[in-house]
Design a protein around this nucleic acid. Structure first.
Length: 592
RNA sequence: GGCCCGGUAGUUCAGAUGGUUAGAACGCUAGCCUGUCACGCUAGAGGCCGAGGGUUCGAGUCCCUUCCGGGUCGCCA
């Protein structure tokens, strides 16, 4: 038998035709002399009918069929009678009257029922991932992922990009995330590192004159997982020569715009909104703001700098700030307990506490009111546009903590107050990032983006005198509060690059050891260049409307970076370790 | 590494205050059933209550340790 159609390719237009479908048994409904089987393939499901009256042998065979058996069915496509139509099914108006059945394979009873609304827990489903992947939801997500990759390749090809592969077995670069290491058999005691990104290689391709490069590529970072983070993930990576930031932005706006149009049919007009890093932090408390709703931060430092409330006054005196959010209407909605819970949220981000005021028609309810004058309260209310029923929330601390705490509180409030339109996509750029940030632990400046990012021309002079003030030619693309991509114009001058390394505390010698080949390359005519990379997984999540990255990866890992299906990572033979000149410090009893 | 949540039939869950033989639904098996589509009806099988230790006359329940899964902080140039 040869398959003629996928299940849902059949329509009322095909009624009367002899067809052959192949797939899995979704459900069998055995009414005795009449058996209905819903057959599933990647397109969806269709009902097959076996009638003992018209074909007793066939009916007998159909009665042996169970869930997830693999069948080939030949039959005549028929229109269902009016009463038998199932409006909830794509193929609910038709069915196949079977004339031949082949059981291509049997199946054990699956550990969970494979249907759209699974209730089995995720760990079990991950162990049997190949079964979970049969669900329409995951089939759709991976199809969407395929289409995004296809559109990316088409779009960048249309714009003159070459897809070029870069090595996975490469050299460890200690800046940034922890590396996954691969031991070398041939070079005892030496290790390759899996790339955190193809950053250096793509820049070298610019030195080589390829002009425009792109690649859909796996990247590896040995850091702890999150709902939107996996240890191996995929980037749509690209780099361009002879461009400035506006060129890179324009090309990639074109891509995102086309992506939304061709996948969701949505029009995202270009140019996209832009926020500077400073503005994003001051208004949203985040460098990846979700701009689908308001609740913006308001600085009230000047109003309370001299205040009788010590917490506020001290914060301002110590160079920090006092900022607030007006949670419109929440004063009337939230109980005391719920407000206290918000206090716990900000404590997660190191804020010492959350001050609050419930604005009422006559005065206000607030534990801090007694520390403030009538005038101060009046000014605060005015600046926050407070009206009766509002809840005003304050954090006073170093700016960094205030932004972090209120930024996350804002997201929590947006969700709680139902202010987020989940059908909406807000796409924007965040620009003018700080080039460097001070690492307290290591007592040195580190690159915020990576050490090849170019400083903004007007700030270069501060590189040695006031490094924290230098802004970079970096840009992130943010959609609905997710950083979906980022990039920068790179340093292409050998001198500036050396200066950058010095600022982040890398001696010429260390820089030479780590990036020598790159510095060498830069001596031979490096074009001005820049680029960016998109997180394919996150883009797919957003377009699929899920907040779980495992929903868009065929074989994802769990929080401990293990694969529940294959049981990776696992112990290996002693012989393998010997060949690699490796001895672990782990007592093998504890591993058994 | 820290904090929070969870772990009881194949699955999803219920099991006040510790108390005889641990329940339900779905699934599974068998029988009946010609228009079902979460088919229906009848019967049946199915449990190391995540693991180890402790308290107790007695532990699914209380205590300690540990393992597994999720979220999150740190981390993620």
């Amino acid at each position: 038998m040869k398959r003629t159609h996928r299940c849902t390719e059949l329509t009322t237009a095909d009624v009367g035709k002899e067809v052959v479908v192949m797939g899995w048994v979704q459900r069998r409904r055995d009414l005795g002399k009449l058996i209905f089987v819903t057959l599933r393939d990647r397109s969806g499901i269709i009902q097959v009918v076996f009638n003992s009256e018209t074909n007793p042998e066939l009916h007998e065979k159909a009665s042996q069929v169970r869930s997830e058996y693999v069948l080939a069915v030949r039959g005549t496509l028929a229109r269902r009678s009016e009463e038998a139509i199932n409006r909830n099914m794509v193929t609910g108006e038709i069915e196949i009257i079977a004339s031949e059945l082949r059981i291509l394979n049997k199946s054990e009873v699956p550990p969970f029922h494979i249907e759209e609304n699974v209730d089995a827990n995720e760990a079990l489903r991950l162990k049997y991932r190949y079964l979970d992947l049969r669900r329409p939801h995951l089939q759709r997500n991976l199809h969407l992922r395929h289409r995004i990759a296809k559109i990316a390749r088409d779009y960048y090809d249309d714009n003159g990009f070459y897809e070029i592969e870069t090595p996975f077995l490469t050299k460890s670069t200690p800046e940034g995330a922890r590396d996954y290491l691969v031991p070398s058999r041939v070079h005892p005691g030496k290790f390759y590192a899996l790339p955190q990104s193809p950053q250096i290689f793509k820049q070298l391709l610019m030195v080589s004159g390829f002009d425009r490069y792109m690649q859909i590529v796996k990247c590896f970072r040995d850091e702890d997982l999150r709902a939107d983070r996996q240890p191996e993930f995929t980037q749509i990576d690209l780099e361009m020569s002879f461009v400035d930031m506006e060129d890179v932005i324009a090309v990639n706006e074109g891509f995102i715009s086309r992506l939304f149009r061709e996948t969701l049919g949505l029009d995202i007009p270009v140019p996209f909104k832009r926020l500077t890093y400073k503005e994003a932090m001051e208004r949203y408390g985040s460098d990846k703001p979700d701009t689908r709703f308001g609740l913006e931060l308001v600085n009230i430092s000047d109003l309370v700098a001299e205040s009788g409330f010590k917490v506020f006054r001290d914060a301002v005196e110590n160079g920090g700030s006092v900022r607030a959010i007006n949670a419109k209407g929440a004063g009337a909605k939230f109980s005391r307990k719920e407000i206290d819970a918000l206090g716990e949220v900000v404590k997660t981000y190191k804020a010492k506490g959350l001050a609050w005021m419930v604005v009422e028609a006559e005065g206000l309810k607030s534990p801090i009111a007694k520390f403030l004058t009538e005038t101060e309260i009046g000014q605060i209310k005015e600046r926050l546009g407070a009206e009766p029923g509002d809840l005003l929330l304050f954090v006073a601390d170093k700016d960094e903590i205030v932004f972090d705490a209120l930024g996350h509180l804002r997201l929590e409030l947006g969700e709680k107050l139902g202010l987020i339109d989940h059908k909406r996509y807000d796409v924007l750029w965040v620009t003018e990032f700080p080039l460097l940030e001070y690492d307290e632990e290591e007592q040195r400046w580190v690159a915020k983006h990576h050490p090849f990012t170019a400083p903004m021309d007007e700030d270069i002079d501060y590189l040695d005198t006031d490094p924290g003030r230098v802004r970079s030619k970096a840009y992130d693309m943010v959609i609905n509060g997710y950083e979906v991509g980022g990039g920068s114009i790179r340093i292409h001058s050998q001198e500036l690059q050396a200066r950058m390394f010095r600022v982040i505390g890398l001696s010429d010698e260390q820089a030479g050891e780590r990036f020598g080949f790159m510095l060498d390359a830069f001596k031979y005519g490096t074009p001005p260049h820049g680029g960016m990379a998109f997180g394919l997984d996150r883009l797919t999540m957003l377009l699929a409307g899920t907040d779980n990255i495992r929903d868009v990866i065929a074989f994802p890992k769990v929080q401990t970076a293990a694969c529940l299906m294959s049981n990776a990572p696992d112990v290996v033979d002693e012989k393998q370790l010997e060949e690699l000149h490796i001895k672990t410090t782990v007592n093998d009893k504890s591993e058994a």
